[in-house]
């Protein structure tokens, strides 16, 4: 059962500080390339969490509380309402977990999750996360560079796009028993987008393993795009030449596109994207081009009509 409010934590559940510091040190050591992932434990209190170092891509905006990040979710596989995932996602079994790599890649194979992740240092990345519905949060993800993984997987010259697929398991994901979206959920990136250093695969947040409702055990994070691009609970990574058809664009092509870059100048047909509400704040704030990452990713779209390719 997930912790909803800090006051709900029994004192026995709070990690002893020494252990906690040890764990920090351990993860730090692990980030040199060792087994960081398997060392992540569920225990620990997010309230006193601090990132180890400030990376070049980290925002210094105030972090959204752990409780909010883990109780206000869009993860339609567990139901259409914001509180459905935190209520229902406990049925998801994340161990063992394997990821199939297929398509235009040197050696297609199915990997055990631990083996897939092992070579890569885990790092905290504090990113803004903007939902297409007009709300946003600041999340301290724990993850590794997607580009580094792709380099290691060695896609062939034919690979122009990467497609990701979420687990399809109606017995574990009650939302999949209903006709809410075409299942399984599929997302995709252009290869150069996927190789961008901002794009990560995340295995945790607040220094802890990802809660199921946030996309455990492995999810994509592309902070300059609307949240629905950051696909959760990934079981398949496919390299291919044609542009993949992502689920929301397939469901409502007029409203959701392939690119889904955060763009205050291009409205969603049913609502404006000019502003957003940061959870915890009263006034709406202006939405920034590419969610504030224009300097980093702008050049990826220099020759693209963003009004057409929404």
């Amino acid at each position: 059962m997930l912790v909803r409010r800090p006051t709900d934590i029994r004192s026995s559940e709070i990690t002893d500080e020494k252990l906690y510091l040890n764990r920090r040190r351990f993860i730090k050591a692990a980030s040199a390339g060792a087994l960081a992932f398997s060392s992540l434990t569920e225990s620990g209190y997010a309230g006193d969490w601090k990132p180890k170092t400030k990376g070049p891509y980290d925002t210094d905006e105030e972090l959204t509380p752990y409780d909010d990040i883990t109780t206000y979710n869009n993860f339609v596989e567990f139901g259409p309402n914001k509180d459905d995932p935190s209520k229902n996602a406990h049925t998801l079994r994340v161990k063992p977990w394997s990821v199939k790599v297929e398509g235009e890649v040197k050696s297609p194979a199915t990997y055990n999750l631990e083996d897939l992740i092992k070579p890569f240092p885990l790092e905290d990345r504090i990113y803004r996360h903007r939902c297409v519905e007009g709300w946003s949060i600041v999340v301290p993800w724990l993850g590794f560079s997607l580009g580094d993984l792709i380099k290691r997987l060695e896609p062939t010259s034919k690979a122009k796009y990467v497609q990701f697929t979420t687990l399809y398991a109606p017995d574990q994901m009650p939302g999949q028993r209903r006709d809410l979206l075409p299942w399984p959920y599929v997302e995709g990136l252009r290869l150069d987008e996927a190789m961008h250093p901002l794009a990560i695969l995340s295995v945790g947040l607040y220094g802890k393993p990802l809660p199921n409702q946030d996309g455990a055990p492995l999810r994509l994070v592309v902070p300059w795009k609307y949240g629905f691009k950051s696909i959760k609970s990934i079981v398949k990574i496919r390299f291919q030449e044609p542009q993949p058809r992502n689920s929301w664009a397939a469901q409502v092509p007029r409203e959701y596109g392939f690119y889904a870059n955060v763009n205050p100048n291009v409205d969603h047909p049913r609502w404006s994207q000019a502003k957003e509400r940061r959870l915890g704040e009263f006034f709406r704030r202006k939405t920034l081009m590419f969610n504030g990452y224009a300097d980093q990713v702008g050049q990826l779209y220099a020759n693209l009509d963003l009004r057409k390719n929404y």
Binding site: D67, D68, T71, Y72, K82, D83, G280, F282
Partner: peptide
């Protein structure tokens, strides 16, 4: 008033 709404109370 008792904080029982979601993280987005205005909504």
């Amino acid at each position: 008033f008792f904080g029982r709404l979601s993280a987005n109370p205005i909504n």
